[in-house]
Simulated assay, not measured.
Amino acid sequence: MRARSLSRGAIAVSVATVTALVATGCGGSDAGSASGGGKKLNVYAWAGEIPDSVVKKFEQDTGIDVTLDTFDSNETMTAKLSSGSAGYDLVEPSQYSVQQLIGQKLIEPLDHARIKGLDNLADKFRNPSYDPGNKYSVPWIWGTTGFAYNDKCISSATSWQTLFDDQYKGKIYMLDNMLAAYIAGLQVTGARATSTDKGEIEAATAALTKQKKVLAGYNSTNYPQLLSTGQACAAQAWSGTAMAKVVAANPNVHYVLPEEGGSIWTDGLAIPKGAKNTDAAYQFINFLLRPEIAAMATDDGGSASTNAKARDFVKDKKALENPAVYASDAAIEKADFLLDPGTAMKHFQQGWTKVKAS
């Protein structure tokens, strides 16, 4: 789907995209070597996901000068790499984008002999379905797609069925994002969010079409505020800063991953093909894998860290308990990584056209 709050439209797989389609220490001795470039590093990352405090500390510890450029969609990042003249040493693709970049040969396999700290990652992010063996990417931050509800309207809710319930007609919102909506449509009809089966997509299309009479609308912007004021009873939602703030401030608003699973996304680091400053790139990856540094993604960036050991270093303990930041291990057990649908994209596009026109 970054602050990955409501821009998570791009992360849960942006409509624009889909429809168009350490050394624990720092400053290792290889910085500046002839084979890996000089003491500089060019990074291209999601806006707000690598806090300034992290960059500054890395520069102080290593003497490496970091240039951090930011993007707001995987498509923008991919287009830059495709141009062949981007000049970046590290990029931060989302999980489905990692698949696409591998297929386009735009990122290099990682040399795991040069990486220290992969064992700090939580189990969910080791050997992920989109990048077996973490061959091409190191997950950095993560979040989920689920729903939120206001208990003044709905006493409790655990299933996507809540968003399809006639009794809440006119007070339900869905994300205005094709594949995000299909997560609910597929799972509520018994399929996986990763399904590319034409028949299952058609069943999901029928469910989403029927749901439309219940909805107040599709909303990817201010739904957390609508939930907080009670104008919405429930809404499909992305975890992240905006949703987390409402959950923290309003005890009546609850964010949940549905019992059917919901989905999980992650943004990680990859080395583009032809990167010049690879020594610095590996130093930065190792730096971010240090638990005390990874904790800064939460304290200074408001994001959940993929680093299991980082939780001991997070100062904002309330964030660890906020499901709109850190969903529980039990909650994400059934959550799917949303993958690149490949040729099945046409079935989603055709179905979404039907849903929106109904």
Score class of each variant (00 low, 15 high):
182 Y>V: 02
119 D>M: 01
338 L>V: 13
320 L>A: 10
258 P>K: 14
81 L>M: 08
104 Q>I: 00
344 A>W: 12
229 T>S: 15
323 P>Q: 08
7 S>V: 10
321 E>F: 00
95 Q>I: 09
174 M>W: 13
186 L>G: 07
33 S>Y: 04
331 A>K: 11
114 R>N: 12
7 S>W: 09
289 L>H: 06
253 V>P: 08
298 T>L: 03
132 P>T: 13
268 G>I: 11
141 I>H: 07
332 I>D: 09
333 E>A: 15
225 Q>S: 12
145 T>K: 03
122 A>Y: 06
54 V>W: 03
80 K>A: 12
43 V>E: 01
18 V>D: 03
191 A>Q: 14
94 S>T: 10
163 L>K: 06
154 I>D: 02
336 D>I: 04
154 I>E: 08
232 A>N: 05
162 T>M: 05
130 Y>Q: 01
194 T>F: 14
2 R>K: 14
131 D>Y: 08
144 T>V: 10
144 T>N: 13
163 L>E: 05
215 L>H: 06
237 A>M: 08
151 D>N: 15
30 D>A: 05
71 F>M: 04
323 P>R: 06
358 S>K: 12
189 T>H: 13
175 L>F: 08
192 R>W: 01
201 I>W: 07
42 N>H: 13
7 S>Q: 04
121 L>T: 04
13 V>F: 13
247 V>S: 01
146 G>P: 07
210 K>C: 04
269 L>C: 07
22 V>Q: 07
206 A>M: 06
250 N>M: 08
333 E>Y: 09
231 Q>V: 01
49 E>C: 11
143 G>I: 01
311 R>K: 15
14 S>G: 14
120 N>F: 07
294 A>S: 13
64 I>F: 12
226 L>A: 11
311 R>M: 12
70 T>G: 01
151 D>P: 12
320 L>G: 06
331 A>E: 14
189 T>S: 15
308 A>R: 14
188 V>S: 15
284 F>R: 04
207 A>V: 11
28 G>F: 12
207 A>H: 08
201 I>K: 06
248 A>Y: 00
350 Q>P: 00
127 N>P: 01
91 V>R: 11
103 G>W: 03
265 W>K: 03
115 I>P: 01
205 T>A: 04
326 Y>S: 05
66 V>D: 02
252 N>L: 13
286 N>K: 06
228 S>E: 14
313 F>L: 00
284 F>T: 09
79 A>Y: 09
136 Y>Q: 08
52 D>K: 14
170 G>M: 02
222 N>V: 14
346 K>P: 03
7 S>N: 02
105 K>E: 04
353 T>E: 15
43 V>Y: 07
311 R>W: 01
161 Q>H: 11
136 Y>W: 11
49 E>V: 15
72 D>H: 09
142 W>Q: 09
46 W>F: 13
333 E>G: 13
204 A>S: 13
78 T>I: 12
192 R>G: 15
219 N>Y: 11
181 A>K: 05
154 I>S: 02
224 P>M: 02
138 V>A: 07
165 D>F: 08
197 D>H: 10
240 G>D: 01
214 V>L: 07
198 K>S: 15
285 I>T: 08
1 M>P: 12
196 T>F: 06
344 A>G: 04
162 T>Y: 11
353 T>K: 15
171 K>G: 06
29 S>F: 10
202 E>S: 14
287 F>K: 00
279 D>H: 10
73 S>H: 09
100 Q>N: 07
324 A>P: 07
134 N>W: 06
135 K>P: 01
283 Q>D: 13
133 G>A: 12
147 F>G: 00
74 N>E: 12
